[in-house]
Amino acid sequence: MEYQTKNPDNCLFVMANPDIPRIRSRVERIAKSIELLGFVQFWVQEDRTLKIEYPNYLECTLINLGVINKERNNEQ
Results as ranks from 00 to 15, higher is better:
48 R>N: 11
53 E>A: 10
45 Q>V: 08
50 L>C: 04
26 R>V: 13
40 V>W: 07
48 R>S: 14
35 E>D: 13
44 V>H: 02
58 L>I: 02
48 R>P: 12
60 C>F: 09
68 I>R: 02
53 E>W: 03
64 N>T: 01
63 I>R: 08
25 S>P: 04
42 F>P: 07
34 I>V: 05
59 E>F: 10
56 N>V: 14
28 E>V: 02
58 L>R: 01
28 E>T: 10
51 K>N: 11
61 T>M: 14
62 L>H: 05
40 V>Y: 10
58 L>T: 00
35 E>P: 05
41 Q>H: 14
55 P>T: 09
57 Y>D: 09
45 Q>E: 03
68 I>F: 04
28 E>Q: 13
57 Y>R: 05
49 T>G: 06
38 G>A: 03
41 Q>L: 15
53 E>Y: 03
52 I>A: 05
37 L>A: 15
65 L>E: 08
31 A>P: 05
45 Q>G: 04
66 G>P: 05
42 F>I: 08
29 R>E: 11
35 E>Q: 15
68 I>N: 02
31 A>K: 01
37 L>H: 10
59 E>V: 07
28 E>I: 08
27 V>K: 07
44 V>A: 01
30 I>Q: 00
68 I>A: 01
57 Y>W: 11
65 L>Q: 12
49 T>N: 15
56 N>S: 15
38 G>M: 08
47 D>S: 10
47 D>W: 05
62 L>R: 06
31 A>C: 11
47 D>E: 09
43 W>T: 00
58 L>P: 00
37 L>P: 03
46 E>I: 11
50 L>V: 06
50 L>F: 12
27 V>A: 02
29 R>G: 05
65 L>H: 03
36 L>Q: 15
34 I>E: 01
43 W>H: 09
50 L>W: 09
64 N>R: 00
51 K>W: 11
49 T>Y: 08
37 L>F: 09
42 F>D: 04
50 L>M: 03
25 S>A: 05
68 I>W: 08
52 I>E: 10
